[in-house]
Every structure is written in C-alpha cells, then in structure tokens.
Nucleic acid binder design. Sequence first.
DNA 1: TGTATTGTATTATTGTAAATAATACATTAA
DNA 2: TTAATGTATTATTTACAATAATACAATACA
Lengths: 132, 132
Amino acid sequence: MFVLDYRSKLPIYEQLQTQMLKLIVGGVLKENDQLPAVRTLAMELGVNPNTVQKAYAECERVGMIVSVTGKGSFVSNPAVSMQLYMREKFKELRNLIQESLEYGLEPSMIIDAVSAWCEKGEWDYDPTQISH
Amino acid sequence: MFVLDYRSKLPIYEQLQTQMLKLIVGGVLKENDQLPAVRTLAMELGVNPNTVQKAYAECERVGMIVSVTGKGSFVSNPAVSMQLYMREKFKELRNLIQESLEYGLEPSMIIDAVSAWCEKGEWDYDPTQISH
DNA sequence: TGTATTGTATTATTGTAAATAATACATTAA
DNA sequence: TTAATGTATTATTTACAATAATACAATACA
C-alpha cells in the first residue's frame, strides 16, 4: 500500500505523509478504515517504527487520521484530506504560474498548454518543443 | 546581487544556482557578463568559497555559465538558460496538473483558476475558498 | 619575468537533521 | 491477565551540507 523511494531527497516520513494523503483523496482509504499498526508498517517497509510514528503523528496533526492508544489509527473524514490536497495543489499551481510570468513566459503560452493538457488530454503537448 | 535565505531547507549552493538562472533569464545578467570571483562572492555572502564553487560548477555543467581558470566566470548564451527555465517550469506545471486531475480536481476548476491568475492577474482568486 | 588574480582540486573537520536502536509507559480489547 | 496498540524518551548512527585550510593551474598584467 505504501511504497518508498530511498533515493529521494524527501525524508521517509514526508513520503509516507504524502502517500497517505493521496490514498485517502484517491478513495483507496475510506473513512474509519484502520491503518496498519505503527510496528507492522515499519516491519513491512523495513524502516524504524519511530519513522512511521512520526508520519502518523503529522497526519493526525493536520486531521487526516485519528490515532487512539490501544485501538489503532483510523482514517478520518476524507473531506478534510481533499480540502488539504486541493489547497496544496492550487497553492503550488499559483506560485508556479506567478513565477513563470515574472520571468517572461507568455500568458497565452501557459493558457494554451494548460488547455491542451487539462481539457484535451494532450499530454504530449510541449510548448518548448519545435515541431518538425 | 545574490541573496541567501539561511533558514531555507534548500542548500546554499542550490539557492545560488536558482538565483543565477533567474538573474540570467530576467536579463539582469547578460551574455558574457563577468560574474563575481568565487572568493569575492563567498566573502560578500559570508559563506565558504567551496560552496560558491559548487554552485558555479553546477551552473557551468548545465550550460548557464562558462568558467576559465585565470580569467573568471562568464554568462553564456541566455537562450540556453531560458530554454532550461521554460522546460523546467512547463514540466513542473504539467506534472502538477496531471496529478491534480488524477486525484479528482475538475479540469474546469483548473482552467478557471489559471485564467484568473494568468490573464486577469487576479492573484486573490482562490477556487478552494467559499465567497461570503 | 615575476606577481596577483582567477578557477579548480583535495583532505579533514564540523554541524544538522533524518533515521535507527532500545526501551518504557499508557490504553484498549479479548 | 495478556497481547496489541499508540506514545514518549534517550542515545547513537548516518548522510550531507558547509566549513577550514591548503595546494595547484591558468591567465592577466606591470
């Protein structure tokens, strides 16, 4: 369920947190679903329990999951996670576009690209590529 | 010319590299402009010469600048940097949109937001915010 | 020709944060 | 009571950025 990239610059606990968010937003994990126990997941992934604990703690802090000593950790209302995900993505998108414009990229170029990808699904569309 | 954020998670040499790219793309640094000497810039910024050297070396590796022992470091063709910058930004933008769609964000929501920001300059536009 | 300035390379050391290791404690369920 | 769970603590290890201190190589210039 969780997969790690050990070559990534991102810390393991952040990777776990990100994956948790995607699993919830993507509907793989549903409300009240029980998550693997800290020690169990640590074993499966071959990492230290403290690392998993750190990820779970952060997920709980932002309201993605709820942990209860003796019972386990459970997915909380996915709407919370969806909200988190959307805010995060739109913030990234806004910052990216803002910076791109500051450094001379044409608004029309951006709009055209976003349309091609977003509406037409033309993922091959590349505004930096000259067509031959 | 170069400014560092010592609280940033990004290493100093990466910050320098990013700033170099922006200075070139933004036209502040023009073709064949001589850059500060490694030791000089290190002094100015209060960092180790090795750190500046690492940044310059990476900038040269990707073709942003050219360094010659005994002479100095110079800005190479800005078109190279612009190409690098555009490719990088559009790649980020594409990945961001692709992922957002995979996790349920509506294409129209993205298009609307990009239009508001990009064409109308409405940077306050926030699709995740309910208006009152 | 020498001297200073420049880029480049090397080795050792330090500082920081992630990750591990090893426990211990608290709560819950069976 | 026992086992499984989350939580907390302290110490250690590891990786990497950054520093420190040199040394070498190429160029410019007086």
